[in-house]
Design a protein around this nucleic acid. Sequence first.
DNA 1: AGTTGCCTTGAAACCGGTTTCACGATAGAG
DNA 2: CTCTATCGTGAAACCGGTTTCAAGGCAACT
Lengths: 335, 335
Amino acid sequence: MQQKGETTIQDIADHAQVSKSTVSRVLNKSTAVNKDKRTAVLAAMKTLGFEPNLAARSLAGGRSMTLGVLTQNIGSPFYDALAQGVIHGLAGSGYSPIFVDGQWQQSTEIESIRTLIGRRVDGLLLIGGDVPVEQLNQLRERLPTIVVAREVVGWENQCIHVDNVQAGYEATKHLIDFGHQRIALLRGIKEHPDAIQRFEGYAKALTEAGIEFDTDLIYQGDFSGQSGVMAVNSLISRGIHFTAIFAANDMVAFGARLALSRHGMRVPEDISLVGFDDQAESAFATPPLTTMKQPAVEMGTAAANALVKLIHDEQYELASLPVELQRRESVARLR
Amino acid sequence: MQQKGETTIQDIADHAQVSKSTVSRVLNKSTAVNKDKRTAVLAAMKTLGFEPNLAARSLAGGRSMTLGVLTQNIGSPFYDALAQGVIHGLAGSGYSPIFVDGQWQQSTEIESIRTLIGRRVDGLLLIGGDVPVEQLNQLRERLPTIVVAREVVGWENQCIHVDNVQAGYEATKHLIDFGHQRIALLRGIKEHPDAIQRFEGYAKALTEAGIEFDTDLIYQGDFSGQSGVMAVNSLISRGIHFTAIFAANDMVAFGARLALSRHGMRVPEDISLVGFDDQAESAFATPPLTTMKQPAVEMGTAAANALVKLIHDEQYELASLPVELQRRESVARLR
DNA sequence: AGTTGCCTTGAAACCGGTTTCACGATAGAG
DNA sequence: CTCTATCGTGAAACCGGTTTCAAGGCAACT
């Protein structure tokens, strides 16, 4: 934090008795500079407290050192963790993220992306989202783009996501292994790809175990706690028999767990419960929640790193990130 | 999303048969422009798909339309909610926020603020943080600055925060009103101003009720769930008698609640529990957690609005935001 | 000693806007 | 019917950097 009237490259040049060009060169290490001059420039920058004007730099150099990040539902644990990972992954890279919120609405998302483009971001990081693939393809031609937490066909190398059908399969399998057959699925938002894929995994596990699939056990809701309580209430009031629940995410599981206890049903003695995400609170729920742990922070970090590499035209590998069953105490063997 | 090779103001000018200046004028509505030309320009912008280059704009106009937001602990519900509020409050204002993470470390914070300055942000929004007051005062002279979730003396009009001693007082009072006298305080990080002030409120309520203050009941921890379980374990292993707990935040309360149940103590029948923040999960805890609700989103929104006004030199009022007791089911009358 | 070629360096063009300034036209006032 | 404000407009300067280009200096090579 320095004086007012920002110091410019010209001031440095005057002070160090060199030209603007030279100052720029030491700033960017672009060309060799005589050692004496270099130190003089460095010294001048120190005394005058110089901080390069990014706008000018961006205008002249065509790089803004800014990355656009489109998030969804800021305030939801999973997406926040992702964002946290992005920030973490960008630290020290010289790039700063600028966040816009898409709110899971196509029109908002597209509008938001437009403003990012107006800001001449050097790359785009899309977290989830509903933007149609054709638009994405167009986008990709203009700007380095990475998509995270969403599967896009044809984007295999610019797309970081977990295998949600496998995750859904494993969660269900875990319950089956513990003797459960009547497993309610609290499904999440109808059109949401994650919900659809986890449902597939659920169905697959059931089929594989030779368990009859029963639509009565499927509850179409959203990803909120309230949805969890409504699901359980609905199940019970309809007199559906079930011994376990696989919830769309941890928040839904919390809601379900509460509704269960309101009905005098214990977890896990009467009903087993599996969540999804492993948000921080889940380890401290009563009982601690068994859940599918999504490596959200790691995904964010990986995405950020990949984007930077992509911008620099460097090679990179997209490590496949596993979602792992986090066994705690909300699942019990069926007696 | 448009063609490649970005359209510039000059392209528009050529297409509409006017000068750059005129285009700029209709863009900014700065000077009256002949209606015919204005519509011609607008039409040209439409056909060519024009998105002004923000870097150029910033360089020329001295405004970057970007606001620097310094957050702490991205990933913690309270700060995330604040950030969410900021984004919400900025929507449609033309300003975009750019976030940097201070991680509650002075050096990181100062470094982060430097990069924000380098980006020539038009204003600064500091969420919490440890930056010394003298530095803040220096900062304020260079840049419109608003501080939120932190009280800074002498900044009464640029500072949005809740009354933590009052909040601590009310929480404690609530417990006292329900007959509790042995109230454990899970205090949070030692030097954290919020923790200190809530402690003051706690002490005040006790004194006022003529209840003896007992240091055995005070647990110095942090703001994590783990801290909650450690606190309860410590209390119990030391054989301290208590009938209620006032936790530093909801996360700590969850931890405490879990530890309690591990020791066979029920909430609220045996022990009453009050949290702080009212994060989303709290309403769905078992039992639903009584807690002090912080208007985090509103604070963020208010801060964002205030900052925009401050930048425009407009008048604004800083509404005082109350933290309110959210009564749920984790507190019971002492038998 | 004369060339050639590399290295360092400054001058100047350029990036895409905003803003000042001056000028011509139009309109209102005397 | 002039004279003077007012309005609309384009040319040009400017914002603070990066990058191209050409030139000067010096070492190496023939």
